[in-house]
Design a protein around this nucleic acid. Structure first.
Lengths: 130, 130
DNA sequence: TTCCTTATTGATAACAAATATCATTAAGGA
DNA sequence: TCCTTAATGATATTTGTTATCAATAAGGAA
């Protein structure tokens, strides 16, 4: 894998942002370097994830997010702002050994929590509308 | 909600098929009634799911599946044939009360297992290639 | 340093899943 | 039977993502 200027920018973005989507990374990189193509963002994120350098987090019903934290952990997805946050509960390895009546070969599992995050919670709108 | 011919066909399809996607339903309905539009399939599945008559199952990195079984349960997603199967482990309601350091209001969670299903497993290709 | 191979890039097209639009059709109650 | 309006079919649009392809630039060899 060749080292390029664009890769460095993308790497910087993933570290600066909180579980960004490809579009989040694009917006971030665009601010300083508008010439970088969206295709380059998608391409590099995909390649980095394939090589295990970053983690691709597929969210049910939404765009994928990326994380420089590659150890497996769970996330909370805010239904309002669509941001992803780490959830501090231990990764359940025994899930991958679940073998019910059926003869499935379970290789992985995806567990994502959803709801309203701290910032988006109504009680946090300290007298805005009123 | 008005009763239509198309709705009946879609209902029939969801019961005949195993956790079908919208496209699966379309293919099934098309066989007997090719004039039914794909838009009608999507529209009715969405409406039925909104009303809680069927269950929409969002799979990370793939199209939504639908189920006439509306009680919450977990699924196994085959990486090869992309079919969905029920997993017979109890639904974990305590997950929805997880409240870590952060002040999230957790409303739901999504847990999906993935791997290779019975049919797609190599050991099941009984001397095909050889 | 210069050359050369080829991975990478930018622009764009293509794709897949799903929803939106809109004129036409048909439920089904009055 | 009429009439209102939800539902339909066809199509366009949107979103997220990957594929294509000519032009560019890494970075090792000479």
């Amino acid at each position: 894998m060749r080292h390029t200027f664009q890769k460095a920018l993308i790497d910087e973005a993933i570290h600066a942002l909180n579980h960004p989507t490809a579009d989040d990374v694009y917006l971030y990189v665009s601010q300083s370097h508008p010439a970088v193509s969206k295709a380059t963002i998608y391409r590099n994120l995909a390649k980095l994830a394939d090589k295990g350098i970053i983690l691709r987090i597929a969210i049910p019903g939404g765009p994928d997010h990326f994380d420089y934290q590659i150890h497996k952990h769970y996330h909370f997805h805010c239904d309002t702002c669509h941001q992803l946050f780490d959830i501090q509960i231990p990764y359940n390895d025994t899930f991958n050994q679940v073998n019910p009546a059926n003869n499935f070969t379970i290789k992985d599992h995806s567990l994502t929590f959803s709801g309203i995050c701290n910032k988006c919670h109504p009680s946090n709108n300290k007298g805005k509308k009123k």
